[in-house]
């Protein structure tokens, strides 16, 4: 467990014992006592199974959900306050936008920068920021195209440009590689690296895909209702992964045969509590009461 030695100056986002239950959710809370410091300028990956609370944590961070207990501070501010000041550049999963909307890539990229402008203010500054951001993500050539005609990868670049144009210092990306082909995923990882190096951004990639997280992060936080691990990706042992993904073993190991295989091997070598055959998730679930 690595933490800054209590220095708030180096902390971009601080989660302190965050617990959240959905209304009417009689069962276990969606998030339980999550504590995590996101350091300024780091590349953090939040890895977890579907239904493990990733999107809940994301919505809490963005101020889209309220009613949590514990503390969430973005640069010392509560989430809604941080959203108003556009401290976090949110890059949503691409499916959420209304793609039949009659706007160009440039217009879409300028929206976050211009949303806070007064009605009589000029939009020129926002458009220039959008142009700069589009060139930074290598999307200048598609600036005039309608968003409905863009490919998944192009659209993602436009969404990243939108976040950059808002001048946010923290980039929060939700499942950024869903629906992106392997070549595009590689380009995406390179882009994140470049933005991190050139702009000194803090990047947080939230994904269920181990490869995505490993390729874009220096540090990984594993989230399945509560935080199971956070440290470097290299230190992620198979049994930590197995523990995190026990509800979702088929989904994750389905496209990660090598790791699944290794995980299975490890479980034979070590006789840990959770050293089950990971191909059989029901066995593991029995031990933990299956609170998903």
């Amino acid at each position: 467990m690595i933490r800054d030695a209590g220095t708030t100056s180096g902390t971009a986002i601080r989660y302190e014992s965050v617990t959240f239950s959905y209304e009417g959710g009689a069962e276990a809370p969606a998030l339980e006592r999550v504590s995590l410091d996101v350091r300024r300028g780091e590349r953090l990956g939040i890895l977890g199974p579907n239904g493990g609370g990733k999107s809940t944590l994301l919505k809490l961070t963005l101020g889209l959900l309220r009613g949590y207990s514990g503390t969430i501070e973005i640069e010392g501010l509560a989430p809604d306050e941080a959203a108003k000041r556009r401290l976090i550049g949110y890059v949503p999963q691409r499916v959420e936008a209304e793609l039949s909307f009659p706007i160009t890539a440039r217009h879409a990229a300028s929206m976050a920068a211009s949303a806070g402008l007064g009605p009589f203010a000029s939009g020129r500054g926002a458009r220039e920021q959008a142009d700069r951001a589009l060139s930074m993500v290598g999307a200048s050539s598609i600036a005039e195209k309608p968003v409905g005609t863009l490919s998944g990868g192009q659209l993602q670049r436009v969404m990243i440009a939108r976040a950059l144009a808002s001048r946010a210092k923290i980039l929060l990306l939700d499942e950024p590689t869903v629906g992106i082909d392997p070549a595009g995923q590689k380009q995406f990882a390179e882009l994140i690296q470049r933005l991190h190096d050139e702009l000194g951004l803090t990047t947080i990639v939230v994904s269920h895909d181990l490869r995505t997280v490993a390729a874009t992060s220096d540090r990984v936080a594993c989230l399945a209702r509560t935080l199971h691990y956070h440290d470097s990706p290299e230190g992620l042992t198979p049994h930590v992964l197995a523990e995190v993904f026990r509800h979702d073993a088929a989904a994750i190991f389905g496209d990660l045969h090598v790791d699944a295989h290794r995980a299975a091997e490890c479980s034979h070598d070590h006789s840990h509590d959770h050293g089950h055959d990971h191909g059989q998730e029901h066995g593991a679930q029995g031990n933990h009461g299956g609170g998903s």
Binding site: L62, L64, E96, A97, E98, A112, S114, R162
Partner: peptide, 13 residues
């Protein structure tokens, strides 16, 4: 912004 992308608009304040 809201009409185009509601969740993102909310996240940007």
């Amino acid at each position: 912004f809201w009409a185009f992308d509601e969740p993102a608009a909310a996240a940007f304040g």
